[in-house]
Design a protein around this nucleic acid. Sequence first.
DNA 1: TTGACATGTCGTAACCTTACGATATAATGA
DNA 2: TCATTATATCGTAAGGTTACGACATGTCAA
Lengths: 110, 110
Amino acid sequence: MVTRTKVAGKPVGKPVGSPAAFAQAAECLKTLAHPVRLRIVQLLLHGRYTVGELAEDCQIPDNVASEHLRLMQRCGLFTSHREGRRVYYQVAEPHLQKLMHCVESRFLGR
Amino acid sequence: MVTRTKVAGKPVGKPVGSPAAFAQAAECLKTLAHPVRLRIVQLLLHGRYTVGELAEDCQIPDNVASEHLRLMQRCGLFTSHREGRRVYYQVAEPHLQKLMHCVESRFLGR
DNA sequence: TTGACATGTCGTAACCTTACGATATAATGA
DNA sequence: TCATTATATCGTAAGGTTACGACATGTCAA
């Protein structure tokens, strides 16, 4: 018995994925799809920064950085913890690394 | 002479990327960040579909599909060509494959 | 406790995105 | 030519996103 999944090297049938899964993926990508947020992701993948340091690097007010960080935390990309008055965010989503690599290899020339 | 780029295994200095590059990357991700457009990308990475077929798969009217396709074409993701009354779009951005793989491995469970 | 610093939250105005319906263009066949 | 099919474009209304300023909270040190 043969389960035919290809003909002449081409797949038969369509790739899978529930509408809900696509919605979730789109939601997450939408969160990433902002210049400042991409930069923040890049920084936090490489080192340790306070909210204020991230804000300064991105040249935006602290409260705006805080809102971007909150957005990304809400969709599971980051976690945060306080140390004294400072707050550090860190990458919580393991796939971010690979995804950022894709983005970097295409847009942030090497 | 030693160019020191790491201390204790950690990078020194920040990762690079011009603001313009981040803006462009964000622009492109924003275009991808829509459930229907993700599904269209997935389909076109695996096979050959007319606008109408894509619309039907996504359960949206033809003109809406057409607009999504135009958006993605505008930012360089697709090209299109006509065959009779039908129009076929195809992936023009080589990095889409890898990027979609990231998204699939995270959200469209295997 | 008080003041200064670091971060977070909220209301709001400006702007952007989306889907829809109507209409336009393009190609085909009768 | 005319009707039909396939795709594209346009105006618009509804809803979403962003940045900003003002204010709130949390932490520390004097």
